[in-house]
Design a protein around this nucleic acid. Structure first.
Lengths: 191, 191
DNA sequence: TAATATGGAATGAACGTTCATTCCATATTA
DNA sequence: TAATATGGAATGAACGTTCATTCCATATTA
């Protein structure tokens, strides 16, 4: 295994274990075993467990932005822009359940609170696109004139909730249901 | 301190510490200290930490139902019923931030996953009222005809998200903003 | 080219610490 | 006085991290 591969294996193992069992269900020894490396080896790649957890978070964040932005710039109509981003994000989550669960674990932990200080939720670039879109929406009076945080809640709250329910098997989302869910979110935020 | 008082003190201490710092930021010794009892004493009232955590959850659940049901039975119009329950729940959360944060911690932990198996989220009686209301709403064609889990997500997702943002200080909810938020949730679920 | 030396990566046993739980001498209650 | 409750020290399991040692690809030497 090359250096990069080994680092990736550690990431993968940590992602799997933490997404499924939480931070405390993923001891370093178990991560090492699943990654196929010695326990001490992890510390050659990551200073400590906190750093591993935080860097893995950034890694996952970095994967999402390009995916949801695919095809986005060409869309001009406001409503369709909203639907595109919402659908793409929801799709990403249900297609990458480990990533989703990891983000959830992270956000609902002491790590996450710190992060949410300056960006309410989600990835920083990603969040930037949404913020921009929402600010235009308010200015053009197509969206409700409420604080951004509330628009975010109306748009992302259901999205996260629905993604989790799908992943846990409480509901099965198909294309039709995804579309109707995002449209319902649109109903919530539009004027 | 009487037996009941002591039990209450343990509950209060556990609630405070867990709501603020999570389950792992609340060691039994710390709970005991804050409750003003010996570490061993807790085990006279609760078999172990799991039982303490689970019973505290039930305790909090039990407080919510009567509050949100106050005045509810007299309301006949469907939309107003929805707004009443939503508003009452959101109000309860922002007036009882420790309760809210505890429920969040619980739901986002291995304890919570188990609980969500048979009731998607929230208290069992509470959930029952909502389920009943939503089923009527679908039958009468005033709500969107999507799976219950999705209606729950559309109604509660934003509610939880907004409550958290308020408690963390990212937004300040006044009566007007609460009303507009719940009305936006209504827009999401209604036909 | 073959034999040897080198340095840094990898290993996993060992260590210190944290924590839930138990134990038991003492205090309180009936 | 007997029965019960209390508190906090003691226990042992679990965990993150360290570190002496091994391993191995590459460089150096003969």
């Amino acid at each position: 295994m090359s250096k990069v591969e080994k680092r990736d294996e550690i990431f993968r193992a940590a992602l799997e274990l933490i997404a499924e069992h939480g931070f405390h269900g993923a001891p370093m020894a178990m991560i090492a075993e699943r990654a196929g490396v010695g326990a001490g080896t992890i510390y050659r790649y990551f200073e400590n467990k906190d750093v591993l957890i935080t860097e893995l978070y950034s890694e996952i964040e970095g994967r999402i932005y390009p995916v949801i932005m695919e095809g986005y710039p060409e869309i001009k109509a406001f409503r369709e822009r909203f639907l595109h981003l919402g659908t793409a994000l929801l799709r990403y989550f249900i297609e990458n359940p480990l990533d989703f669960r990891y983000l959830e674990q992270f956000h609902n932990s002491p790590y996450g609170v710190e992060f949410r200080r300056d960006r309410l939720l989600g990835e920083i670039e990603e969040r930037f696109v949404f913020r921009e879109l929402f600010e235009v929406g308010i200015a053009q009076q197509v969206m409700k004139d409420v604080p951004l945080a509330i628009l975010f809640a109306l748009a992302f709250g259901p999205l996260l909730s629905v993604a989790r329910d799908h992943i846990l098997g409480f509901v099965t989302l198909d294309d039709d249901l995804i579309a109707r869910t995002i449209e319902a979110c649109w109903d919530a935020v539009r004027r």
